[in-house]
Amino acid sequence: MRVLRSLLASVDIILKPRSFVGPAVVSRRGNSSAATKDENVSRVLVTGASGYVASCIVNELLTKGYTVRGTVRSLSNPNKVDPLKSLAERTPGTLELVEADLLSPETWKSAVEGCSHVLHTASPFPFEQPKNAEEVVRPAVDGTLSVLRACKEAGTVKRVVITSSVASVGVYHTTRPLTEEDWTDPSRGGPEAEPYIISKLMAEKEAFKYIESLDDKDKFEFCTVLPGFVIGPSVANQAATSLDIVKRIMVGGDPLIPNIAFTWVDVRDVADAHIKCMTLKQAAGQRFLITDKSLTYRDVCKQLYDEFHDQGYSPSLRLAPRLVIRLMSLFDNAARSMNLVWGVVTTYDNSKMKNVLGIQPRDCRQGLIDMAYSLIENGYIEKSPKFKGRKTS
Rank of each mutant, 00 (worst) to 15 (best):
A284D: 06
I231D: 00
K80N: 05
A372N: 07
F262L: 14
Q286G: 09
T36E: 12
I245T: 10
K354Y: 09
D142P: 04
A167Q: 04
R73H: 01
P126G: 06
L327H: 07
R248P: 00
R149E: 11
F125M: 11
N59T: 11
D38P: 06
G285E: 01
L62Q: 08
D269Q: 07
R322D: 03
L62H: 03
V141N: 04
R5L: 12
D363G: 07
I290K: 02
S76T: 13
V112I: 12
D38C: 15
F127Y: 09
S116G: 11
N132K: 14
L243T: 12
T392G: 09
N378D: 11
A24T: 14
L75Q: 05
A372D: 03
T63H: 06
A9M: 02
L214M: 11
P126K: 13
L178K: 04
L375P: 01
P105E: 02
L145V: 09
A203R: 00
S242A: 08
S234R: 11
A261Y: 13
A88C: 13
A239S: 15
D215H: 03
I231M: 03
L61G: 12
T291R: 01
E89Y: 09
I231V: 11
E153Y: 01
L340E: 15
S116H: 03
A240I: 07
N378A: 08
D299Y: 09
T71P: 04
L75I: 14
I376Y: 02
R390H: 08
F308P: 00
G190L: 10
D244Q: 10
P23S: 07
G190S: 11
K352Q: 14
K276Y: 08
S393H: 15
R29N: 14
T121E: 00
S374N: 09
E135R: 08
Q366R: 13
Y373T: 01
V267C: 10
V137E: 02
P258A: 14
L330W: 04
A236Y: 04
